[in-house]
């Protein structure tokens, strides 16, 4: 019985141990999805100068969720501490510039705005309400 269980699980257990040992090195991963719930969460969107939303599906090839992942990678690379809106204006500006550059590299022809803005929304829980705080990270004029 024990031998059979061991034979049926040893390959998976080996993979599990390698993941714990190697961490994030594809095809190994610790899968840290929703492993903690801090009292903040960021989301990012692009708008024109009048704050009219420019939907990602219509104008860009990068979805909003990937844009957020991109933000954390840039911040890690730039040694910027993230969370609880502790990032400085300059840090947000720098990260926003890189994010917009990537976004515009693969934009659709539908984008007609002269100037676009990248916004960060910070959600947090205050009492029993979810509060959203909007910050303009970066703004730039775009050629048509």
């Amino acid at each position: 019985m024990f031998k059979s269980i061991l034979r049926n699980t040893s390959f998976g257990l080996g993979y599990l141990l390698l993941c714990l040992f190697l961490g994030e090195m594809h095809p190994f991963s610790l899968l840290p999805m929703y492993d903690s719930f801090p009292n903040w969460a960021y989301a990012f969107y692009v708008s024109d100068k009048q704050d009219n939303l420019l939907p990602n599906n219509k104008h860009f090839t990068i979805p909003a969720m990937d844009l957020a992942h991109n933000y954390y990678t840039i911040c890690e690379d730039q040694k910027i501490n993230t969370g609880y809106e502790r990032e400085t204006k300059e840090e947000l500006n720098k990260a926003g510039e890189i994010m917009l550059e990537k976004l515009l590299a693969k934009r659709a022809n539908t984008l007609t705005a002269d100037t676009i803005q990248l916004h960060r929304i910070c959600y947090s829980l205050e009492g029993d309400s979810v509060i959203a705080h909007n910050t303009i990270m970066y703004e730039r004029a775009i050629g048509k």
Binding site: A41, Y42, A43, F44, Y45, P55, A68, V130
Partner: peptide
């Protein structure tokens, strides 16, 4: 908060 974040992604997309 995570729920709001994820639904806002859908709105932004």
């Amino acid at each position: 908060i995570q729920v709001m974040k994820n639904y806002s992604y859908l709105y932004y997309d």
